[in-house]
Nucleic acid binder design. Structure first.
Lengths: 337, 337
DNA sequence: GTGAAAGCGCTAACAA
DNA sequence: TTGTTAGCGCTTTCAC
């Protein structure tokens, strides 16, 4: 049987309030009383019922994190960082994945476990402004990823254009001039994909290097398989780049696999830069040069933003918070032999 | 302002109970009444307070999953499978990681968010029998991984000895005879590590192949870095295996990286078999042969076990449930040239 | 410093 | 079929 505050109170011969005071470390309790109550607590093995506390306080100490796919190491690593950041404030994390499906994302944004969660961190892939505009839930929300929502929700991003430009600049500095961008997807709302493409184009243009359409390669998704497929299609079409800037590390890894199969050597024949800096890129026959977003910072900022909303700040959200990134140079972009 | 059942009841001019009936799809409500109440619900934008429901029912519909590390793709993929399996029964998953730290594991097993969770799935790395024996919490618990706890908790495992033997048998059939085992760790309670070593030894012995101690390689952890370190140490010590069976895919990948750096070619000079079948192994310059545990089955069984406890079964747990595995052959164990 | 009592929002007996 | 009411276990005024 569960033992409640009342049981402890009776056992100690005091009121419920007093026990509650002890449990909550209320300062104005005489040491003697505290000891007496504590003894009763220990004897009965009392453990507070968090659900009741939640109901009473209207807070649960739980925040939810919804990412497209845990199988994508970037999101898994990010989730780990969020769990840690949340734990620092004694919050626990409820995890869900949306499969990058717009409908799922809408569902989650609307009212995923309302009342059970104090806030929601959502990393959308396909969610549109309008989906959020009609949002009814009152749960604080913060969005991950650079998106231009004109809405009262904070979002945490890195400067994708600038990051893409660094990647391309790095390739140019390595003497590459036919740099393909692997990650175009016209049918997707995914803004980072468009921004990275924009950065690719800007940097090339500014450097006076041509950016022909044939080097803009569409992908069907953001994983290794799709990266491989896209790379194969590009090569099959007879286009021969001397470098590839991929939407993310997974796409880059898929592309590298195909390059390898086709006998093209990375970095000698084709240099490759990814995006995300997942652990996986540090290993493999050719380690992967990549843009490394500061995941810890992103996680911390997201949690902080939620905490801010919870603390009753009335200022509307809608801030655009920017996390840092760095370019991590590895073997996939070493100079030519 | 939050709108409650009472508000809806007043608005519709009915009793709270009636509204509750409608909300919970209680069958015996006249259609007219249902419509009337539904209208009030829609008008006020009523959403049930789950916390209150939880307090009342003593159930939350939340289960917790605690894994060592989300950065390990095996656990990330498993977590995804658990989330899916839980969702099928309308459960949500609270995620935590223990960093493979015994103290953390004990903490989690004792009372992680008690009352908030209906059950706990724990994937322990260092937890000992005694830690569980003194467990006071009353939250249903199921353990992941093969462990011989003589305790009233179900655990889900695959047959590690048998799986290891398949891996070794496969290598033998490929003409390898100096097969190293990368993953010994005497200081760890991690049973699978010991069982896989046992399987390695059994298979070799039975095949009449020598299993010298020099081929049993200790690792300092279960990730890529430690795999790399262990492989480097082995080679530095002058031992030259013609195959490696690694504790898991991460260790295998770390080892392959070092083999590559040292100019040893996989599979030609050294064949490699991993364990876990993480996505990552399907790519890379050399795809990885591995033991593939049925993660979906593990997740489903774990959730089912929890559901069983929740349904009030009185039979003690303590069952040892076994999930299937398969050997997935890839490039890292192709025949010699 | 401690006690009494109200009530968070809901469900489930029990009545009507 | 629908209404009344008593809690689930806790926190929190407000007295004392």
């Amino acid at each position: 049987m569960r033992v409640s505050l009342k049981d402890v109170a009776e056992h100690a011969g005091v009121s419920i309030k007093t026990v509650s005071n002890v449990v909550n470390n209320y300062p104005h309790v005489t040491p003697a009383m505290r000891a007496r109550v504590q003894e009763a607590i220990d004897e009965l093995g009392y453990r507070p019922n968090l659900t009741a506390r939640h109901l009473r306080k209207g807070r649960t100490g739980i925040i939810a994190l919804a990412v497209p796919e845990l199988g994508n190491p970037y999101f898994a690593e990010l989730a780990g960082a969020v769990i840690d950041a949340a734990a620092e404030h004694e919050f626990t994390v409820l995890l869900d994945h949306t499969r990058g499906d717009r409908e799922q994302e809408v569902l989650v944004s609307q009212g995923f476990r309302a009342n059970v969660i104090d806030g929601l961190i959502l990393s959308p892939l396909e969610l549109e402004d309008e989906d959020l505009r009609s949002r009814t839930g009152d749960v604080p929300l913060v969005l991950l990823g650079e998106r231009q929502y004109e809405l009262p929700y904070d979002h945490i991003a890195i400067d994708n254009v600038s990051a893409a430009r660094s990647a391309v600049r790095h390739l140019l500095s390595r003497g590459r001039s036919r740099i393909a961008y692997l990650g175009a997807r016209t049918d997707s709302a995914n803004r980072p994909a468009h921004l990275r493409l924009a950065g690719w184009r800007e940097e090339l243009t500014e450097a006076g290097v041509s950016a022909p359409d044939e080097l803009v390669v569409p992908v069907g998704g953001w994983d290794r398989d799709e990266g491989a497929r896209a790379m194969a299609r590009l090569l099959d079409s007879g286009v021969r780049p001397d470098a590839v800037f991929a939407y993310n590390d997974l796409v880059a890894i898929g592309a590298m696999r195909v390059l390898h199969e086709r006998g093209l050597r990375v970095p000698w024949d084709v240099a490759v830069v990814g995006f995300d800096d997942i652990e996986e890129g540090r290993f493999g026959a050719v380690t992967l040069t990549t843009i490394s977003p500061d995941k810890q910072a992103i996680a911390r900022m997201a949690v902080a933003s939620l905490l801010r909303s919870l603390s009753g700040r009335t200022e509307p959200g809608g801030r655009e918070l920017t996390a840092d990134f760095t370019l991590v140079e590895r073997e996939s972009t070493l100079g030519r032999r």
